[in-house]
Structures are given as C-alpha cells and as structure tokens.
Design a protein around this nucleic acid. Structure first.
Length: 423
RNA sequence: GGAGAGAUGGCAGAGUGGUCGAUUGCGGCAGUCUUGAAAACUGUUGAACCGAGAGGUUCCGGGGGUUCGAAUCCCUCUCUCUCCGCCA
C-alpha cells in the first residue's frame, strides 16, 4: 500500500501518477490525508493524557511508599476521569487508523514515470520484438492437438480426477515439464539467484504482505479448516520470507528463485481463450524475486528483464516485450514488463512472464526495511518476475517446433530431456 | 489426537505489581593501544508513532481483562519443546 507520509509530502505527484491508471485520485488522496490528520490529532491528545496518567501513577507510588495514604487516595480519585479520556481517545485513534488502512487497501500502486497512460492491453507499449515467427503453413496443429497426438498431456484425465484446468502430463510431456523447470532453475542460479523450496500454502498474513489480500481474495484457493491459501505464485512465499525484516545496505540485492506449482481459481474468466494450456487452475512456474535498494531498483529490474529475455533466446522462441500501460498493470506494481511468445498455430501472442518493480508498495505492508548510510530506517523495493511460467512456453514450443519428424526440442533443453525429438 | 513445560532485545539468558525498554554475557559498531591484525580496555548498540525541536507515547508471542500502576496477576488464541498415540 502507499506510504501515507510520502503521499502527505508529495500529494500532487501521487495524484498525477495515479492518473495513468485512469484513477481520479484527487478525492481519495484528500480523504486519506484527512483521516491521517484525525489520526495524528487523536494520538497527540492521547499521548498527552497518558503522560499525565503516568505522572500521577508515579506520584501515587511515591505516596504509598512514604505512607501518605490520604494523599495517594486523593490522586487516585483524579485518575478515574483521565482513564475514561484515554479510553475515548484510544478508540478514536484506532478507528481513524482502521479507516485509513481500509482506504489504503483500495488504492493501487502509483505508476512509474515511464508507464504509458492507457485503458487496456491495446495501449501497452511494445519495447522490442525478437526472433522470427515461423511459417508453418495451414496444416499446423494447435498445441492441444499435438499434445493428444503424441500423448503428452491428457486434459480429460485431469477433469476426471480433479476438474477442468488441471491437466495430466504423461511420458515425454512430463519429462519436458521437468526439463524446463530444471533448465530455468539452473539459469537463475547462474544469474546469482539462490534457490528456495517453499511451502505451497500460506497464511493470511503472507497474502496481505504481497498484496493478494484483500484485493484478490476470490482468486485464491482457500482451505477454511486451517485458514490457509494455496499460493497463486511463488512470489508470495518467497517475498514473505523477508516480512518484518530490517536489512543493512550491504545485504542488497537479495536474489531468490524457486519452483512451485501455482493455483488460481480464475473466477469469471471462462470463455474461449482457455483452450489447452492457455489458462489453467494449476500450473508450474519458476519465479525470480529481488529485494533492492530504492536507488537502484530500476537497474535491478533491467537485469531481470535481460535474464528472462536471455532464456527465451536460448529456447529459440519468438517473443516480444511490452511495457504495460497504467490501465493494464497489476494492483501492486509500479512498472511491469510482460513477455509474450508467439504461438504459431493459434496465431497470437501468449503471456509467459510478467516482471515488475513494486517499489515500496509491498515493502510497506511487509514491513521490509533497511537502514541507510545515515542510520535511517527506510522501506526497501521489491521486484519479481516469472522466469518462466511453463504452460504457455510448452504450448508455443510444441506449436512452433512441429516438423514432419516430430516436435524438435531446442538445443539448450536436450541435455535435460535426453531426447531431441518428441515422436 | 492426549498430557505437561515454555514464549523477554541479533543470539544466550535474568527479571514475579511501582524510574524495567528492561541486569548480565556474546555478537555488532566506534575508539584507545599496535607497523598491521588479534587480545585487552573504553564507549556505543531495538522498533513504531507523534513532534520543527526539546521531548512524549506505545511495544517483553497475539488479543482481551484486573489495577492509580503489569514483562510480572487473570482469561483467551497462536506457536515452540518434552512424553504418549498415529504416520510418509
């Protein structure tokens, strides 16, 4: 969530930045600062009253010690009213704080200066395009038909044992998945990321920390018995490892990676673009996360973009990089680059990575801070990116690499799969 | 799942109603000494909020209560450890 103090000092800047999301924030910000004023005033009064109470208590103690009962009792009588006042003021402060927090939860992150203003995906800016789109001819098969032809993925079996959107990978299909995961993790390790194996379920605190709660409550699978959520991305457990932590400057940058399955209810997104691997309830992903110094976080973001691009280059997949416009960006992000690979049979771009800088938005909720050179405690910046999400990589790989001899495996993967063709 | 014990500052570990935000040790930081380092010695070393500042308030697992006053007493939740049961 936004940092109230920053908003207080940079009101106009925040409003103009939020405008990129087409969010008229004038009134929100005013309301927010009003609540903040109420809160601060209540606290000042409350603190002063409590200071008085503390004084009286000390005196009472002194009187009791020296056996001056009468004087002690006289003071005791005076505390009754003060106690009442403290209670009222405390209530007032708590309410203002709660209202402020609730309001803050509804305000998305303010976009970076480079974010284009826009409403939807059409307004995203194409940063660059890489690799040639293959010309497969008219008899090219979409990946779900390839998957059936070579018995790589069985969607019906998934429906039988679980439900739609939970595919079963078989034989060379399963092995391809495992090869990609291993390849992605190795690449991340080479780039200096430390691998973590983390729980696939998280508590509500973690959900709030990275911003999934309360915003995306309905998008996560929730186990009511133990009040745990299945993770929608490894970002949640990985970033929350650093919840409530104060780092020193020499700790930067912190670089973590992890493979996890990801679970998403995808409520309300049933329709035509969900065939095959295009949109699933459970999928595999290798995530990279960085915790960075605010002064360098955008350089860190560029290294992540280069990392993801490098992997796609090695996989020999045609892709493009988009800078998301304000209207298409996620709730918590300040700047997001999406990576899309070209799906030759479907003749469309598929999102395979989303790489973002959240600036202090998550860190504020996480209470993830560092001590700067002057000994001041400041919020860190958090960043993360998919490197990469499996299903659409598999989809484009199967489609783009189909040949009369079978599906060609890119060179970089052969050491992992142990086969050069799926036949 | 049953029984018991516990949760204090980066760590270890005191503290059972009145200058306790907390003794002490270790660690960290700074300095003295040294050619340098180590050792030794000296000092310093939690966080949040409010305040221009002086300073004030809050925090001893979370929440609630008793009291003029709570780390210390009561209730409750969570977690950890030990024993038993179950089990990959």
């Amino acid at each position: 969530m936004l940092d109230v103090r920053f908003v207080r000092e940079n009101k106009e800047e925040i409003i103009s930045r939020l405008d990129k999301r087409n969010l008229p924030a004038q009134e929100l910000v005013t309301q927010m600062l009003q609540l903040d004023d109420i809160r601060r005033e209540a606290q000042q009064q409350c603190d002063a009253t409590q200071a008085e109470m503390n004084n009286l208590s000390a005196q009472i103690g002194e009187f009791f010690k020296t056996g001056r009962q009468a004087e002690a009792n006289e003071l005791k009588a005076r505390t009754v009213e003060l106690k009442e006042t403290v209670k009222t003021l405390e209530e007032k402060q708590k309410t203002a704080e709660q209202n402020l927090t609730e309001l803050l939860y509804t305000i998305p992150n303010s976009p970076h200066a480079s974010v284009p203003k826009g409403k939807s995906a059409e307004d995203n800016e194409i940063v660059r395009e890489s690799g040639a789109k293959p010309d497969l001819g008219s008899d090219a098969l979409p990946h779900w038909e390839i998957a059936a032809k070579y018995n790589l993925i069985n969607f019906e079996l998934g429906v039988k044992i679980t439900g739609a959107g939970f595919p079963v990978y078989i034989g060379q299909g399963a092995k391809l998945q495992r090869a990609l995961i291993q390849f992605f993790l190795d690449e991340a390790e080479k780039a200096g990321y430390t691998e973590y194996q983390v729980p696939h379920m998280v508590n509500a605190d973690s959900g709030f920390g990275t911003g999934q709660l309360p915003d995306k409550e309905g998008q996560m699978y929730h186990d009511a018995t133990d009040d745990l959520y299945l993770i929608p991305t490894a970002e949640v457990p990985l970033t929350n490892l650093y919840r409530d932590i104060i780092l020193t400057e020499k700790d930067f940058p912190i670089k973590m990676t992890g493979y996890t399955p990801c679970f998403r209810r995808e409520a309300g997104s049933y329709g035509k673009d969900v065939r095959g691997l295009n949109r699933l309830h459970q999928f595999d992903k290798v995530e990279i996360v960085q915790i960075a110094h605010p002064d360098t976080s955008y350089e860190n973001l560029e290294t992540m973009v280069a990392h993801v691009g490098g992997i796609l280059d090695k996989l020999e997949l045609p892709y493009r990089i988009l800078r998301l416009c304000g209207g298409d960006m996620g709730f918590a992000s300040a700047l997001t680059y999406d990576f899309e690979t070209w799906s030759a049979a479907q003749q469309r771009w598929l999102e395979v990575s989303s790489t973002s800088n959240f600036e202090t938005f998550q860190a504020n909720r996480l209470k993830l801070r560092f001590k700067d050179a002057n000994g001041k405690t400041r919020l860190c910046h958090t960043l993360n990116g998919s490197a990469l999400a499996l299903p659409r990589i598999v989809a484009t790989l199967l489609e783009n690499n189909q040949t009369p001899e079978g599906i060609r495996i890119p060179k970089c993967l052969v050491p992992y799969t142990g086969f050069e063709y799926i036949r």
